[in-house]
Simulated scan of single mutants.
Amino acid sequence: MTGRLLPWILTIGGLIGLTAAGTLTVEKLALLREPDYIPTCSIDPVLSCGSIMSTPQAEVFGFPNPLLGIAGFAVVTTVGAALFAGARFARWFWLGLQAGTTLGVLFVHWLIYQSLYDIGALCPYCMVVWAVTIPVFWYTTLHNFGDRPGLRVLARYHTVVLLAWYLVIAAAVLQAFWTYWTTVF
C-alpha cells in the first residue's frame, strides 16, 4: 500500500513544498529590498513571517533557509515524477534520498522548536513546509526500511503514525501559544 502512495507523496508534497519555499524566498527578497515591507504571511503577532525572517535561525547556513527547500523539494518532486514514469532507482540512490529527507525532517523539527520556544512566532508558509516534509520523510523511510520487523507494524498503520505525529506538533503549537489563543477566542 505505501509503495503506491510514494510517487503521489513525493510529487504532490514536493510541489507544495517547492511552492512554499519559493514564496518564502520571494518574501525574503522583498524584505531585503524594503526593510519596512510586511510579508503577506504576517497576519498577527503569532502568525508572523516577518519576525521569523529577521532571526538568525532563518539563515542557519549563511543564506535564507528557503533556498534549501527549493533545492530539496525540486529533487523530491523530480523523483516522484520519475516514479510515475516507471523509473527504478539503485539502492544507493534511495539511501541518498533517505539521507536528504532525514536531514530535512531533523532540520524542520529544529525549526519547529525554534519557532515555538525561542522566536515565539509561527510562519504559515514554514508550517506548510513542516507539513509536507514529514510525510515525504515517513514514506521514504517506509519504502527503504518498511520490510524490517520494527517498521513492518508501523507500515501497516502508516496513516495513524502520521496523524499522531501531526497531533503532537499541533499540541506543541497550542501549548506554546495558549495564552495568545485564549485571548483571540
Rank of each mutant, 00 (worst) to 15 (best):
I112E: 14
H109C: 10
F107G: 14
G120K: 01
F107R: 09
S115M: 10
A131Q: 04
C123H: 05
Y117Q: 05
I112N: 13
Y117I: 00
Y117R: 07
V132T: 13
L103E: 07
I134D: 06
M127K: 09
C123M: 04
Y125N: 12
L103D: 03
T102H: 03
L103S: 10
G104Y: 04
I119N: 03
I134N: 04
L122G: 09
I134F: 15
T133H: 03
L116A: 04
V129E: 15
D118N: 09
I119R: 01
M127W: 13
V132Q: 10
Y113C: 02
L106T: 08
L111D: 10
I119S: 01
A121E: 01
T133P: 03
T133A: 13
F107K: 07
G120Q: 00
S115R: 05
M127L: 14
T133M: 12
W110V: 11
Q114F: 01
C126F: 06
A121P: 01
G120H: 00
I112Y: 05
V132E: 09
G120N: 00
D118T: 08
V128R: 06
L106G: 06
V105A: 10
T102W: 09
I119Q: 02
T102I: 07
V129Y: 09
W130P: 08
L122R: 07
G120P: 00
A121D: 00
V132W: 06
L103A: 15
L122P: 08
L103R: 03
V128D: 06
